[in-house]
Simulated scan of single mutants.
Amino acid sequence: MPRGSKESYSPKQKRMAEHIEESEKKQGRSAKSAARIGWATVNKKTGGAKGKKSSSTAKKTASKRTKH
């Protein structure tokens, strides 16, 4: 698979990126910049093409903070 290919993303991730891209375009960003921001956001939220990010780390750190 060539670098930059979006084949391995789930349909939900593709829709999410498209929605973010459209939103960025409405705010006046160029198409290239909007696409970059859309995919970067999807990668950050879902952990990229390989799958979902685990939120267990966030839960562990939050529970440590509340136990004083």
Rank of each mutant, 00 (worst) to 15 (best):
M1S: 15
M1D: 15
M1H: 15
M1R: 14
P2N: 05
P2L: 06
P2H: 03
R3Q: 09
R3V: 06
G4K: 10
S5I: 03
S5Q: 05
S5T: 07
K6V: 05
K6P: 02
K6W: 01
K6N: 04
E7T: 05
E7R: 11
E7P: 01
Y9N: 04
Y9E: 07
S10T: 15
S10N: 07
S10E: 13
P11G: 14
K12G: 04
K12A: 10
Q13A: 07
K14E: 03
K14N: 00
M16K: 15
M16E: 15
A17E: 11
A17G: 08
A17D: 12
E18T: 05
E18I: 00
H19D: 02
H19E: 04
H19T: 01
I20D: 02
I20H: 05
I20A: 08
I20N: 08
E22L: 07
S23K: 11
S23D: 10
S23T: 12
E24H: 01
E24N: 06
E24F: 00
K25M: 10
K25R: 07
K25F: 00
K26I: 03
K26A: 05
Q27S: 14
Q27D: 15
Q27L: 15
Q27H: 11
G28Q: 01
R29S: 03
R29H: 02
R29D: 04
S30I: 01
S30G: 09
S30M: 04
A31H: 05
A31E: 13
K32E: 15
K32W: 13
K32I: 07
S33R: 05
A34E: 11
A34W: 03
A34T: 03
R36G: 06
R36L: 14
R36S: 13
G38M: 06
G38D: 05
G38L: 02
G38T: 04
G38Q: 04
W39T: 01
A40V: 02
A40P: 00
A40T: 06
A40S: 09
N43P: 02
N43K: 07
K44M: 09
K44C: 07
K44G: 09
K44A: 13
K44Q: 12
K45S: 10
K45F: 10
K45A: 14
T46D: 01
T46E: 04
T46M: 02
G47E: 11
A49M: 11
A49K: 10
K50R: 08
G51D: 11
K52I: 11
K52R: 15
K52H: 14
K53M: 05
K53R: 14
S54M: 00
S54Q: 01
S55G: 12
S55Q: 08
S56K: 14
S56C: 08
T57Q: 12
T57S: 10
T57R: 12
A58Q: 12
A58L: 11
A58S: 10
A58T: 08
K59C: 01
K59P: 00
K60P: 00
K60A: 13
T61D: 14
A62P: 00
A62F: 09
A62M: 06
S63K: 12
S63R: 11
K64N: 08
R65V: 06
T66Q: 14
T66W: 09
T66A: 15
K67E: 14
H68I: 12
H68N: 12
